[in-house]
Amino acid sequence: MTRIDRKFADLRAQGRKAFVAYVMAGDPDFDTSLELIRGLPGAGVDIIEMGLPFTDPMADGPTIQLAGQRALEAGQTLDRTLAMARAFREEDDTTPIVLMGYYNPIYARGVARFLEQAKEAGIDGLIVVDLPPEEDDELCIPAQAAGLNFIRLATPTTDDRRLPKVLQNTSGFVYYVSITGITGAAAAQAGDVGPEVSRIKAQTDLPVIVGFGIRSPESARAIAAVADGAVVGTAIVKLVEEGRPVPEILDFVKGLADGAHSA
């Protein structure tokens, strides 16, 4: 079992939903970003999604794009992102970390070398948004052989013909994108999400976590009530963009986590 598998088993045993927080690694700088990431478990975060900054983030809205630019300008690299995971693991060996990004930096590093380094750094899963199931031999299958979960996105446009292909080699959890479009584009609606989550769960035993468009404790609670948990990214990253101090950001995260956990 991976840390992700163990986390969901623990949550099920407690009758609790998951709260997942996304932050961009290295935004606005290495030290601030590491301080924030280290504080997330204490704020109630069950799983950390750590964004790997990339120059052409096609699935991300303006807030996440700018976060990636800030991180790159501050000198964030793949190596520094893995170093951040290692530093986190010095204090926390249980909270799962999912690295979320694009294939280019991984391809440039070399898949085998990257997977070895990611595993050694304490990464538990990957979300690589620009690798479709047709390319599973590129990274998905090797990642799972290396002991990392490969988490796939399903969207409102993933119809019943496409869904089995999407689920085929997915592990850890399924990330359901609640809206059509880029991150931060619209608000998630539980009434729309619930039937879609049920449709996915009819075809898999994996937890279904919902992200995109969740900005408040109330929306985190509403979404978690119809899924296995909620993901928040843009609303957190926006506070980093505004230069809010880390304790203030963590207070905001705790409110979101409390919302999801109360579902």
Rank of each mutant, 00 (worst) to 15 (best):
L256Q: 06
P133Y: 13
Q203W: 07
E196L: 01
D46R: 06
F150Q: 02
M100N: 07
D29T: 08
A190H: 03
F173G: 02
R12Q: 15
E49P: 03
K254P: 00
D60V: 10
D160P: 04
A9E: 15
D5G: 12
L163N: 07
I127T: 06
D93A: 15
L256F: 11
F114W: 05
T81W: 00
S216K: 06
L66D: 12
D31K: 14
D160F: 10
A235M: 10
D124K: 02
I106C: 02
S178V: 01
Y103K: 02
F252G: 03
P132G: 08
R162N: 10
E91C: 12
M24E: 07
G125D: 01
I47E: 02
A67H: 05
A25H: 01
V193L: 03
L256D: 05
L36R: 03
L256Y: 07
Y107T: 01
L131M: 12
P41T: 09
R161N: 13
V111L: 09
A25T: 09
L34T: 05
I4R: 03
I236E: 02
L239E: 13
E218I: 07
L72T: 04
L40I: 05
G75K: 12
V20S: 02
R109Q: 13
K201C: 07
D258C: 11
G26H: 07
K7G: 05
A59D: 08
A71I: 07
P245K: 11
V166E: 06
E241L: 15
E241D: 15
K254R: 15
A188K: 01
Y103T: 04
D258S: 14
D228E: 13
E91D: 15
S216P: 04
L11V: 13
T157L: 13
F8I: 11
D137C: 01
T183E: 04
L11Q: 13
D10K: 11
H261A: 05
Y22N: 03
A59H: 08
Y103C: 06
L115S: 02
V23K: 00
C140N: 11
K238N: 13
G191C: 06
F54E: 01
L239I: 06
A121P: 07
E91L: 15
T77Y: 04
A220V: 02
V129N: 01
A187V: 11
S198G: 05
E218M: 07
D159L: 03
A230V: 09
M84I: 10
M50Q: 08
R6H: 13
M1A: 14
D160G: 08
E120T: 13
D258M: 12
A154C: 15
Q14R: 15
V253Y: 01
I47Y: 04
T77A: 07
R6N: 14
R215K: 15
G61F: 09
V246C: 06
F88E: 03
I47G: 00
A87Y: 03
R12L: 13
D205S: 15
G184C: 09
A187H: 12
T155R: 11
A145S: 14
I151R: 00
H261R: 09
P132Q: 09
T204P: 08
L99K: 05
Q189L: 06
P195D: 10
I123T: 02
A188D: 04
L99V: 10
E248S: 14
I37D: 00
L167P: 07
D92M: 10
K165Q: 14
G39I: 10
P217T: 12
A9V: 09
G191Q: 11
Y102E: 05
D10T: 12
P105E: 11
R16A: 14
L148D: 01
E242V: 10
V197F: 03
